[in-house]
Nucleic acid binder design. Structure first.
Lengths: 114, 114
DNA sequence: TGCATTCGTTACGCCACCGTTCCATTTTCC
DNA sequence: GGAAAATGGAACGGTGGCGTAACGAATGCA
């Protein structure tokens, strides 16, 4: 079910959420990291480093480093694939789910303010 | 006129726009820079360094550096205030307007896909 | 069994952003 | 006039992401 937005509403929404995020969230995720995190949580698994790299059109080390950073933040977890030990499977965590839940609330709240 | 979104729609929207931005825009603005840029274009002028710093709850050099970077990208311009020469007034540019127009289109397009 | 391929990671040098602190200019107020 | 305040910016060391290029481990295939 599509949502029709005016140009002004679209930018206002983005503005409000960005502002809220800058003001209240000290975890300062890059746009890339944010895209990776959302991809992990919104697209059905399994997720591998290489898969994410090609899907986001980004080099592999970018994914590795993002997983390092977000792993330390508790937003994401890594597990070796048992069936092919070269692969690493990226797993979701409670912390990551909470983080995105809060982001979703921000988007919804700003949408209501339009 | 409020827009009511489900949690899934909100995150899906954010995901789609982030992904599109990562894939197609090499100008890699920080979340902070993005918030500053949107603030300049969506909130009525005048805008000063100090004003933006307090509004975004950020230190002054953050604003100065963001204006440096975005100035070189042609997204924003600086002009000395004639009436109080200590102040710097931040001005909009054609480049910045185009940039945000494209961003708005992305948001609207992703909204339509929900 | 060997050898090429695939996967994730690490190493390297580079560059941008960070907060703190200090500074030059301009204004205000006595 | 002169001191104090306010403004934007520069300097500093630190931190972290970047792309390129290598690497070790695991797999596939002849």
């Amino acid at each position: 079910m599509p949502i029709e937005l005016t140009a002004s509403q679209a930018l206002g929404l983005w503005h409000g959420v960005s502002l809220d995020q800058v003001r209240h969230d000290d975890r300062d995720l890059t746009l890339r990291q944010m895209a990776i995190l959302l991809h992990i949580y919104l697209v059905p698994p399994p997720h591998t480093v290489r898969g994410l790299a090609t899907e986001l059109d980004v080099t592999k080390p970018v994914i590795t480093r993002a997983l390092d950073t977000m792993g330390e933040m508790g937003l994401v977890d890594r597990v070796r694939d048992a069936s092919d030990r070269r692969n690493v499977l990226i797993k979701r965590t409670v912390g990551g789910a909470l983080y995105l839940e809060k982001l979703g609330d921000r988007v919804r709240e700003q949408g209501r303010k339009l």
